[in-house]
Each structure stands twice: as structure tokens, then as C-alpha cells.
Design a binder for these strands. Structure first.
Length: 874
RNA sequence: GGAAGCAUAGCUCAGCUGGUUAGAGCGUUCGGUUCACAUCCGAGAGGUCUUGGGUUCAAGUCCCAAUGUUUCCACCA
């Protein structure tokens, strides 16, 4: 069916329709074919908290390019989509929404709260999926998953049970990061550090029995209430004699010991450190080593406990003031120092973190980290770019046990059950849990806490494929092929997927991790809500189309590097789409052939061979760059080819043939259409909509472009010699344009062109090109041309004479040729110098030397031409 | 404190394992009513590739150091 394209490129008119067609034809759903290689990707599941932002847009554009590329290359491809429940982030949003209605979690109760959370997920989870679809992503929606769906939950329970039975999950008292606002523990990775102005308070602790005091310093004086020792370094001569003695804790009056511990450093502060095991991670360790008691001074909402009646119920900052005041009054305060320091804050709400001792569940990391380090070290898993493995190793080698319990409701509830009577602990993957104590028959209560959201995302590559069941998907598509994500979540997520996969599936989760950077604004700042500098991808799609958005994100993008995003980039992308649209419109308007055939070399004109050769070079570059994940480079190869070579040159060169009619016209039409069609295929992974829309209008083509074969370099359609010949014509046309421009000759003034060349074959039959593209009235090949009143243009393959006597300023002409001569001579002496260098000739590869010789020859020919031209001026 | 990235035209960036006279987009200047496209066509100006060493026949590219800048991790009694 022949289709004429509308005059203007208007993506909104067809993008939605095309996406529906792809879905209807189930083109995103693979048919498992074991004879084929598989290529699979699992989407980094977007949180259901928000909506699509430019980061998602980039991440998913890259994935879609890869998956479409591999699909067209004949791989059996699967892209699993889904969303993440994002426990703390979502819960915070829901709590916030409820707060506006005057409700709290407690008002609702767990069950009602969860109902509300699921309603949230319906609404916002669905919305983000719709937004992804607008981008054109070719995910298999029949396999859509959610981190909290039945299958993923089963996987989570199974893993928890297994790790528990292996002793890799344990419950214990540890110092954790506590957010007094969210009232939950958060992992180290969820703490943001921000610089704040604070103080260092120096406090004197009097020695028991008189004889002076020791001085300690702290940024958090209120923690004094929880002190159970003062530590000094065992090597510290200043304090050796005090070890084993006691001090009196000011304001509290408790006797606490002076202990020797290497945590105290000789050269820091006074060398004495107050030890608060319940409220500081280092002190906690000291407390363990020294068998110190634990004194809890702060409640869950960071208020002073009832143990200290004077301050009980005070907020930590209030208490800080009161305590400092009292210390001063009591003569304990030795000094106050201003200090800038990094303070840990909750990444969700920004509240200052309070380290607290607490009973939590942990994953023992060391045994899991080891194989995960190995897998990357022996390159079973590769990072692109490679340098990110350093990042990964560093984290993995120094990782501490992972606190996985969260005091939240929205998430996977911990499958641990405690007996109300005897305290027996049962961990089970059974979905019905455990209600009766196997030991005493008592009632069992499930742990109220939920798991860290990353606990379920860590299983994503295999839980989405059916694990722990042995499904066909798991068997065929696992391990997945490429994971595409930003460098900001390598530690959060990538590393956890790796050790999880290795431990539970005994296999890697993916073989390549493609890391991309952040999308920044035009000034290079992070896009953020508070700055209001975010660019909304949905607005861009509405205004410019999804293809333009994808192009703008993919172009210039190189692995691991941040990119700036600006309106100009999007406009450039839209202009490119428009250019393609119009080129296609032109080609289709002129087609009279019924079907596009593979070009027959015997029938081709030089310009046909030239464009086919250029196309082959482009295809080769696109293939090799995509294989290296150089998506930006691959795309710019297509851009340059399509705009500069196909549109600016080949379409123009082919116009005389097309309008000539007859056999030659049919051949030219076919080449025009063939190269267009193949270029559309190359471009399809990047710009799926416009390429599909144009493709569907090409004569004789059936089905969707997305399942056609991706073009690969083909030697039979490469014609280097003819291509080089046509290049001589192009160079000559360019040179004429330059000269005419310099002389200010308007294009409407035509003039005859005499070409004197050693390569007459190259210029044979090129008259119409010069007429159309170089304002020539006629062209004649000559052996010599003697008219003195002619402009002479010298290229390295020809001298062109144009009689434009009245336009010539002979002095200027002499000067110009003189300058050109100088240039050429400089080049010649450079090349000659190089070739005269014995070590260059003997050591450089032959190819390089030969190229240098050839260059020298060309320059010499050009020099001869310039000299001859100058001669005529004298 | 540890580590990594980046530094190329006015701006934003390409430049792969070292090999033509360093490229593109935007901006800028000049010219254009060429029947696909002004979201366009033709042409130009504009760069001592941050600095200093080194390796090499050959360095924007590799090594070392410095400076600037960004980021990650750790710590902060």
C-alpha cells in the first residue's frame, strides 16, 4: 500500500497508534526458541512513589535501544518490566498524604494502612507504567512484575528462611541509624551526610577520690547521660596511671571506669574519649570489648528517657541546651569550640540520624561478599565502563553486616514468629506462617517489622523469572544479559543483586552492567524538585515526540558519564527527526517502483556506488559501537550519514537521474529507497516510532520494522574505487562553491566550467551534478585551458577553470593562490621530513607510511596545479 | 582521610586499542524565493587540546606530577 507522508512531521499523530499496534501484535513477547541465543534485561523497577523523570527516561531509552538492537539481530529477547514498592519512600508519602487529612498510621491501624498503600500502588504504579509506554519501550507487559507481588514475596520468604537456617541472617543488638521522624532504622547507605555548623564541648569529668579530672570533648553533650566509661589509649603515657580508676559522671553522679582501648587516639583531642555504647557505633564496639554496661538515654523519638528525671521528656536539642547550661553552672565546662562537621541525616525526611542500640535483623555479609568479589574479578560479570569495578570492590571488601529490618508497615513482613509464652523463634517461608509454638504450643506472634526495600530488589533478576520455581523463563532467559543503571545505585542495588544471585541461584544475575551517568540541567546541576530545574520528559514527549526525547538522551551519551540536558538538545533532536521525515517524504513522492530490491552492482551509477559504500561504512560503525555499548557514537554515525551524505549529497546527486525517467530512474529510485529503508532499520532502536511510520509506507514492505533484520556490513555493496572517484567530483563541487562564495558570485549567475584533470573517468558524466550543485551552465573536460580571464580552482585531482573575467580581482587572486601555495608547500615539507626520517619509515606500520606517501603525492599534484594557475596570471 | 572521573572552538560535548592539516551540535558572520525540508540550503570565522615533565619514529590520546573541578566511600570522642 503506497502512502504519502503528511507535509509536517507531527509525532503525536502516530506514536500512540504505533505503540498500540506493537502491543496488539504481541511483538514484545518473545517466543522461546532454544536454537536461538537469548538476550534478556530486567528493568530497574521504578519506585511507585513518583512519576517518570529524566533519569528513568535515559535508563529506559538505553535499555530499549539495546533490546531492539538485539531483537533485530535475531536474538530471542526479553525485557521484563515492573515496579518497586519502595517501602520507606512510599510509606513516607502515604503518611504525608494522611497527615493532610489529619490522620496518623496509628489511627488507621496496620490493616487499613496497608489497604491504603495498595490503593496507592494501583494508582501510581499504573501511572508510571503508562508513562514508560509513552517512551516506546518494548517491554514484555505480559510479564510485568511488582516487588511486593505474590511471586516476589515468595522468593523473599524463601531467601529469608534459607539464610536463617544457614546462619547468615541473625537477630541482634547493634547500633543502627535511627530516624526519629520516620521512627525506623535505616541502613548506612540511606544516610546522607550534610555539613552543619556545630560545637565541640569540652567537659571535665572529676576523678573519684579527688586529684583532678579528665577532659573529654563531644559534639552531642546530651549523650553524656548514657556514658558508661572513659577510654584512653593503653600506650598513652599521660594517662597510664589512671587506667582502672573511676570518674564521676557530671550531673548524673554515676561512677564510671577509665578503660584502656585503642579506639582512643594519642594525637586527637585530649586523648580521653567518653564512651556511650548505646548511642555511638564506635563506643558500642568499645563497650563490647570492655564489657561495659549499656545505658539508653534517648527514646525512639529522640527524647530523654525517664531514667534521668531532670531532663526526662526533653527533645534532644532541648536537653542539649539544658545540659550545657548545667555543666557550666557546675563548673564542668572547660570550653566551647566552633566546628563544622558532617551530620548524618535521613535520606527520606532529612532529620538528623540518631545512632541507637536496637534489636534488629542482619545479614552476615562477609561470606556472601567473597564470591561476589570473585565473580567480578574473574570477569564473569563486567562493568561498562570498567572503572566502576573499583567502586564495587571497595564497597564489597569493606561492607558491614546489612541491617535489613525496618520499623515500617509497607513491605515484606519479616517471616519470623515469636512464641508469646516461651520465646521460641520460628522462621518459615510458609505463606501461612506459624501460629502455634512447636515447642510449647503457645501462641506465636509475627515480627511486626518489614524488610529493607533492597532485600526484594536484590532478587529481582531471578524472582521476576519465576525463582524459586524451576520455570522455563528462568531456565532459558537466566542469567540475564545486561543490567542498565546509574552509578548512584551500584552499592545499593547492583552489588546486592550479585551476591544474592550467586548465593541463591548459584549463577551470576547478568553478565554486563552498563553504567550511565546522571542527567543534569543545562548548567550542570542535578535536577531536583527543590531547585525546580527538572525537565519533565512527558512534556517533552507531548511537545516534540518520544523519538526526539530518546534521540536527545542517547546522542552524546557515553557510558558512566553525566550529561547535560537542555532545550537546544531537544530541538536539535526534533530537527533531525524532521529532516528524516522530509527526506523520506521526498523519496516516497518520487517512487514509481513497486518493490525495493537489493541493488545490482552491474546497473549502478558512480553516485549509487558512493552512497552504498558510505552506508556500509555507517552500518559497520553502528554495529561495532553498539556492541561496545557506545550508544552515543553509534547514533552520531547514523546522524552524520543520513544528514550529510544521504540528504545533502546523494538525494541531490540522484535528482537528475530520478527525473530522467527510464531504466536509470528506476535504478536510482531503488537505491534511494533501499538506502532509506536500511538506514531506517539502523535507526529504529533509537527512534522506533518515526522509523516504523516511514517504513510502513515503503512500497512492498510488510510487517513491523522492529522484527526485520538489522543491517550488517556487506562487502558486495562496497565500491571503494568508484567511491573515491565520485569523491573527486564532490571535492570539485565544494571547491567551486567556496570560490564563488569568496568572490560573491550569486548562485543565479551561471558560468561554464572547464575541468582539466588526470582522472577524466571520474568526471565523466558528472555535468548535471556541476549544473545543479555548482551553478555551472555547462561542463567540458579539457586537456588544457588557456583563457587568461578565468578563475582557477585547484583541487588535488583537478584544476577547474571558470571564465568569470569581470568578477576577478587579479591582485586578490594572486594573493589567494600564493597563500594556498604556501600551505601546500608547508604540507609537502612536513610530509617529506617525515618520510626522510629513517626511524619513521622503518618503525611505523607500512600502512601509515604508504598513506603519508600518497598524501605527499596529492600535495605535489596540487602544487603543480597552483603554479600553473599563477603562471597564467602573470 | 581513601578512591575515581573530568579539563579539547564563545557554549555543550565527540575523538575507539597512539598514526592525515583535531571534529559535531548550538551560537556567530556572509550568501540563498534550488519544485523533501527556513525545524532548511551553501560558505566562513573561531582551538599553543589546563600546566610541567616523561615514554615513543609519532602524544589530544599512554605514564608521572601540579592546578582546577565533580563525584563516591570512610571518619568526625
Amino acid at each position: 500500500m503506497r502512502k504519502e507522508l503528511p507535509k509536517t512531521y507531527s509525532p503525536a499523530d502516530f506514536e500512540g497508534r504505533i505503540y498500540e499496534q506493537w502491543c496488539e501484535k504481541k511483538l514484545f513477547t518473545p517466543t522461546v526458541d532454544r536454537k536461538k541465543l537469548h538476550y534478556s534485561i530486567v528493568i530497574p523497577p521504578p519506585n511507585i512513589t513518583g512519576q517518570l523523570h529524566t533519569g528513568h527516561a535515559l535508563d529506559n531509552t538505553l535499555q530499549d535501544i539495546l533490546i531492539r538492537y538485539k531483537r533485530m539481530k535475531g536474538f530471542c529477547t526479553l525485557w521484563v518490566p515492573g515496579t518497586d514498592h519502595a517501602s520507606i519512600a512510599t510509606e513516607a508519602k502515604i503518611v504525608e498524604e494522611m497527615r493532610k487529612e489529619g490522620l496518623t498510621k496509628e489511627d488507621l491501624g496496620r490493616e487499613k494502612f496497608l489497604e491504603r498503600a495498595w490503593a496507592w500502588r494501583e494508582k501510581y504504579g499504573g501511572r508510571i507504567i503508562e508513562q514508560l509506554k509513552k517512551m516506546g519501550v518494548s517491554c514484555d507487559w505480559t510479564r510485568e512484575r511488582f516487588t511486593l507481588d505474590e511471586g516476589c514475596s515468595r522468593a523473599v520468604r524463601k531467601v529469608f528462611e534459607q539464610l536463617y537456617s544457614e546462619g547468615l541472617i541473625y537477630r541482634g543488638e547493634r547500633i543502627i541509624n535511627w530516624c526519629p521522624h520516620c521512627k525506623t532504622s535505616i541502613s548506612n547507605a540511606e544516610v546522607d551526610y550534610e555539613e552543619q555548623n556545630g560545637h565541640f564541648w569540652h567537659i571535665r569529668y572529676p576523678l573519684v577520690g579527688g586529684g583532678g579530672y579528665v577532659e573529654v570533648a563531644t559534639t552531642r553533650p546530651e549523650t553524656l547521660l548514657g556514658d558508661t566509661a572513659v577510654a584512653v589509649n593503653p600506650e598513652d603515657e599521660r594517662y597510664k596511671h589512671l587506667i582502672g580508676q573511676y570518674v564521676v559522671l557530671p550531673l548524673v553522679g554515676r561512677r564510671i571506669p577509665i578503660v584502656a582501648d585503642e579506639h582512643a587516639q594519642l594525637d586527637k583531642g585530649t586523648g580521653c574519649v567518653k564512651i556511650t555504647p548505646a548511642h555511638d557505633p564506635n563506643d558500642f564496639e568499645v563497650g563490647r570489648r570492655q564489657h561495659l554496661p549499656m545505658e539508653v538515654a534517648l527514646t525512639e523519638d529522640a527524647k530523654i528517657t525517664d531514667n534521668y528525671p531532670k531532663y526526662a521528656g526533653m527533645d534532644r536539642y532541648e536537653a542539649r541546651k539544658a545540659i550545657v547550661k548545667d555543666l557550666e553552672a557546675g563548673g564542668y565546662l572547660a570550653g566551647i569550640e566552633d566546628l563544622k562537621h558532617e551530620v548524618g541525616t535521613c535520606y527520606r525526611c532529612g532529620t538528623t540520624i540518631e545512632p541507637m542500640v536496637s534489636l534488629q535483623w542482619f545479614v552476615r555479609m562477609e561470606p556472601l561478599a567473597k564470591p561476589a568479589i570473585e565473580a567480578v574479578r574473574d570477569e564473569r560479570i563486567k562493568f561498562v565502563p570498567e572503572r566502576f569495578d573499583k567502586n564495587y570492590f571497595h564497597w564489597m571488601e569493606n561492607t558491614q553486616d546489612w541491617c535489613i529490618s525496618r520499623q515500617l508497615w509497607w513491605g515484606h513482613r519479616i517471616p519470623a514468629f515469636y512464641c508469646d509464652d516461651c520465646g521460641e523463634v520460628v522462621v518459615t517461608a510458609d505463606e501461612n506462617g506459624c501460629t502455634v509454638c512447636p515447642k510449647c504450643g503457645g501462641h506465636m506472634t509475627q515480627d511486626p517489622d518489614t524488610l529493607d526495600t533492597w532485600f526484594s530488589s536484590a532478587l529481582w533478576p531471578f524472582s521476576t523469572l519465576g525463582w524459586p520455581d524451576k520455570t522455563e523463563d528462568l531456565d532459558y532467559f537466566y542469567p540475564t544479559s545486561t543490567l542498565v543503571t546509574g552509578y548512584d545505585i551500584i552499592t545499593f542495588w547492583v552489588s546486592r543483586m550479585i551476591f544474592s544471585a550467586l548465593h541463591y541461584t548459584d549463577n551470576i544475575p547478568f553478565d554486563t552492567v552498563l553504567i550511565h551517568g546522571l542527567v543534569r540541567d543545562a548548567q550542570g546541576r542535578k535536577m531536583s524538585k527543590s531547585l525546580g530545574n527538572g525537565i519533565d520528559p512527558l512534556e517533552i514527549i507531548d511537545k516534540y515526540g518520544a523519538d526526539a526525547l530518546r534521540f536527545a538522551l542517547a546522542t552524546g551519551n557515553s557510558p558512566g558519564n553525566d550529561m547535560r540536558f537542555s532545550d537546544e538538545k531537544i530541538e536539535a533532536a526534533r530537527n533531525f527527526a524532521n529532516k528524516l521525515w522530509n527526506a523520506a517524504r521526498f523519496v516516497m513522492m518520487n517512487l514509481t517502483i513497486e518493490k525495493i530490491e537489493k541493488p545490482d552492482p552491474a546497473a549502478l551509477a558512480p553516485e549509487d556506488k558512493w552512497i552504498l559504500t558510505k552506508f556500509e561504512e555507517c552500518a559497520e560503525s553502528v554495529n561495532s559501537n553498539l556492541d561496545k555499548y557506545e550508544i552515543g557514537v553509534a547514533l552520531s554515525a547514523i546522524y552524520d550519514f543520513l544528514w550529510d551524505e544521504y540528504c545533502d549529497w546523494y538525494i541531490e546527486l540522484s535528482k537528475p537521474s530520478v527525473s530522467a525517467g527510464g531504466e536509470r530512474s528506476a535504478v536510482a529510485q531503488n537505491v534511494l529507497a533501499y538506502v532509506l529503508r536500511e538506514t531506517l532499520k539502523l535507526l529504529h532502536p533509537f527512534m522506533p516510532f518515526i522509523t516504523e511510520e516511514i517504513y510502513s509506507g515503503l512500497p512492498g514492505e510488510e510487517g513491523s520494522i522492529m522484527v526485520k533484520t538489522f543491517p550488517e556490513a556487506e562487502a558486495a555493496l562496497r565500491f571503494p574505487a568508484e567511491s573515491a572517484d565520485l569523491q573527486k567530483v564532490i571535492d570539485a563541487i565544494r571547491a567551486i562553491r567556496v570560490r564563488r562564495n569568496e568572490m560573491g558570485v550569486v548562485p543565479s549567475r551561471k558560468a561554464k566550467v572547464y575541468i582539466e584533470t588526470k582522472y577524466p573517468a571520474a568526471f565523466e558524466g558528472s555535468s548535471s551534478f556541476f549544473e545543479r550543485l555548482a551553478s555551472a551552465s555547462a561542463v567540458e573536460l579539457v586537456n588544457a585551458y588557456h583563457d587568461e580571464g578565468a578563475v582557477r580552482i585547484v583541487t588535488d585531482s583537478a584544476t577547474i577553470h571558470i571564465p568569470l573575467a569581470d568578477m576577478i580581482d587579479f591582485e586578490a587572486e594572486k594573493k589567494r593562490l600564493g597563500a594556498e601555495l604556501e600551505n601546500v608547500e608547508k604540507e609537502i615539507s612536513r610530509a617529506e621530513g617525515k618520510l626522510a626520517n629513517e626511524s619513521f619509515v622503518s618503525r611505523a606500520p607500512e600502512k601509515v607510511v604508504a598513506a603519508e606517501r600518497e598524501k605527499l603525492e596529492k600535495q605535489k599534484e596540487k602544487k603543480a596545479g597552483i603554479l600553473a594557475a599563477l603562471e597564467k596570471l602573470n
